[in-house]
């Protein structure tokens, strides 16, 4: 029973991780850029939705509006910043996305202030009882949305001409150019879609956690997810997101209590602290040594 409860809790959070990670993978697949600033877009999406409700829109419309705004922000980022850095070294690109994160946080801070704000209800209040855990509709929505979206993107890449062009652009941009694909437009599209996803993730997260600047730190939580899942695999993000959510839940619900009761009984150590914080990263470290391309990633040139 407890196991089932912990697993349920893990899946609920894992689905949010997956949603954020999918956005990062989308951009990486298409342009080889790892967006360390994804958390910034998450936060921006939530604040945009909040601002729209303050302007009088209904929460649902505001959420939709925020997703559109974020798509525009993503496309603009690509056009104004990333496109100018095509030949820059990988460190510089990583740093520029971090710069964007700092900038976005500062903008939200200037407009909305540093305080925590209650976020409008988008989904009806209430909860489903799964194995004795009351999963609120917010979590149900997050889980369903990330599942549906991941599958939709998988299908999109596999079956539509646009998806094929995106894949071609990502796989070999020169060859893609040669057959007449406008590669940089494809990259813009990827950024727009990725940011829109992040914005949606932000709206969902804010309905769960309320609105604050700390929403942006979710980007860092998503990093173990993409390493585990493989930087190039959407399916990988989904599976790794769920896995990591569960891993954290089991660490908190089983491993930590067991370790602590053992240590308290036999040693002078009282607490192992916030163990769940590092378990994902320990796993990442191990994974990088054993299988750097992740569970689902394609073998590339990551290793020398």
């Amino acid at each position: 029973m407890l196991l089932l409860q912990i697993a349920t809790a893990g899946i609920a959070t894992g689905s949010v991780y997956a949603l954020i990670a999918i956005g990062i993978v989308l951009i990486y697949k298409c342009s080889g850029v790892v967006n360390f600033g994804q958390g910034g877009y998450v936060m921006l999406g939530a604040y945009a939705a909040y601002a729209l409700t303050r302007l009088g829109l209904s929460p649902q419309l505001a959420a939709a509006g925020a997703v559109l705004i974020l798509a525009a922000v993503g496309a603009l980022t690509e056009l104004l910043v990333l496109r100018r850095m095509l030949k820059a070294p990988v460190v510089a690109v990583m740093m520029v996305t971090l710069g964007l994160l700092i900038l976005f946080r500062a903008v939200c801070l200037a407009i909305f202030g540093p305080d925590q704000i209650a976020f409008p209800q988008i989904f009806p209040q209430g909860a489903v009882d799964i194995a004795g855990i009351f999963i609120t509709y917010n979590y149900v929505a997050a889980a369903v949305l990330s599942l549906v979206l991941s599958l939709a993107f998988l299908a999109f890449y596999r079956y539509t001409p646009m998806g094929l062009m995106q894949r071609a652009a990502a796989d070999n941009s020169r060859a893609a150019l040669a057959v007449g694909i406008h590669v940089s437009n494809q990259v813009s599209v990827a950024w727009a879609v990725s940011s829109a996803l992040a914005g949606l993730g932000g709206v969902l997260l804010a309905t769960l956690n309320s609105l604050s600047l700390t929403l942006s730190s979710i980007g860092l939580v998503a990093f173990p997810v993409i390493v585990l899942g493989g930087l190039t695999s959407l399916m990988g993000s989904l599976v790794a997101g769920l896995l990591l959510g569960m891993l954290e839940a089991f660490t908190d619900g089983l491993l930590t209590p067991a370790l602590e009761s053992f240590l308290r009984a036999h040693t002078s150590v009282y607490s192992v602290g916030a163990l769940q914080q590092v378990v994902p990263y320990m796993l990442v470290g191990a994974m990088l040594l054993v299988r750097p391309q992740g569970i689902f990633g394609q073998r590339g040139t990551e290793r020398v």
């Binding site: 460190v91 990583m94 990093f223 390493v227 990263y281 990442v284 470290g285 990551e302 290793r303 020398v304």
Partner: peptide
Amino acid sequence: LRGLYYAIATLA
């Protein structure tokens, strides 16, 4: 490891 993967390893 190199490039990005090393960066993530140092992050870990």
